[in-house]
Design a protein around this nucleic acid. Structure first.
Lengths: 243, 243
DNA sequence: TTTTAGTTTTGATTCAAATCACAGAATTAT
DNA sequence: ATAATTCTGTGATTTGAATCAAAACTAAAA
């Protein structure tokens, strides 16, 4: 097995390579950027930014998952995004003077790279391609939000659960001979908060799906999908699948 | 009163001026663009694009309102956006090869300007500022979607109705001595489809708000807000107000 | 105007999911 | 390993909104 270089510089550049929005830059430019990046690690449960904070840099997730959520006035949390390796956030806050519109919390130990506001603005004006890539990525997120909104608005709970299982299968699943195993990034309560339903309802519905032979709960953190097509028809909206 | 020029060229340039994303261009550039714009008008009820269509141009609304919505498999419509004068759509479909993710329908007679795919791509690479403006505008929409998602997920129906009344007050309201009069862009059914609730529920809740003295229904197409602060506290989330 | 079609409101009933309450598992800490 | 704590599943009950049904109202057409 080839030895992997663990020096600072390599790690930084590694981080850059993971970021789709910077993929149009050449080696030299990537190296230049890696020089000006700053880094910060977070423990599980730590908060990266608070809703309402003034953000001063673009944050890129280098390792680990985070959840982005809002609290309602009655104290309930609505999870909006799960950001994983290569995802970024904070771009809005750097281009406008808007403060953060959600709280971001580490679900595991997380490593981040940060690009300062001025560096980011220089970069985006020097490389319009990066702006186009950001527009594309934001477009992906908007499509996901639009689907989520539709699913909340018109679909029943079974649809939503089918949808999130498919979404997670793509994002957090690994193929096995028995089927796709999803390594859940969230607890049952977290998933319920993502779907906007009660934890108990989720438990009951998952139990139902298991008795119908569509899934098999391996443990609290992983689910085996035994009937993918069944889930697809449960989810109803075929658009969910490619998210 | 000064006479307004109604010639083709002036109208086109007028159209350009309404578009925030192009506001950083100077007169000469605007004129150049106005030369390459194409135009199309639609009657009330006409469909501008269908969900799934391949889009070949950026569409800018010059006059009138449109609704953007998706149908669920069981035939119910979820309205995602109301686009008004100066709003645009289709930018995703020009940058990626994605097809339209929603249907867009005219709510009134609508005039549009269209910028072709290639012209749009040239423009965006020549003027990175435009890309930045688009990112900002997409950011605004995402914040709105995020709030809508939260409101669907965790808030009760009263919250949502308060929220939409405030949103519409900003977007479609005019100040009068009695209070803000909202000229509703949608029927009761449309508003219900926007909120993801049943039309009957909306009727009942609006009736309740009226008997509580917070609003006064002038006719099916306009509502007078008599207790703005009351609505704000009903909506709960203060972020709704600036949307 | 009267007719007609469409929209909105109101009432009665049903139903799906929330809530409440608690027991059983699974983690984490000691 | 055992205790403590946090997470998950299940049953009983409540509840808020959906649905069904029909009347009242509005707007458009003849």
């Amino acid at each position: 097995m080839a030895e992997q270089c663990k020096c600072r510089s390599c790690q930084d550049r590694l981080c850059m390579h993971k970021v789709p929005i910077l993929s149009s830059l050449d080696q030299e430019e990537l190296f230049k950027i890696s020089e000006i990046l700053s880094h910060r690690d977070y423990k599980k449960g730590e908060t990266l930014i608070f809703d309402g904070d003034k953000l001063e840099s673009l944050v890129i997730i280098n390792e680990g998952n985070v959840k982005a959520y809002k609290y309602s006035t009655d104290g309930r949390e609505q999870i909006l995004y799960i950001f994983t390796e290569g995802d970024f956030f904070g771009e809005q806050n750097l281009l406008s003077d808007r403060t953060a519109t959600y709280t971001v919390e580490a679900l595991q130990p997380v490593k981040t790279c940060m690009l300062s506001k001025t560096q980011f603005q220089l970069l985006i004006h020097k490389h319009p391609d990066i702006a186009v890539k950001i527009i594309k990525e934001l477009g992906e997120r908007m499509v996901r939000l639009e689907n989520a909104l539709q699913s909340m608005g018109v679909r029943n709970v079974d649809n939503r659960i089918g949808g999130i299982l498919l979404e997670y299968a793509v994002k957090f699943g690994t193929e096995t001979p028995e089927g796709i195993v999803i390594h859940l990034p969230l607890s049952r309560e977290g998933i319920a908060n993502y779907l906007g339903i009660a934890r108990e309802t989720l438990s009951r519905k998952l139990g139902q799906l298991e008795s119908e032979g569509m899934i098999s709960s391996l443990n609290n953190k992983s689910i085996l999908i035994t009937d993918y097509d069944g889930l697809v028809s449960l989810a109803g909206n075929p658009e969910d699948i490619r998210i």
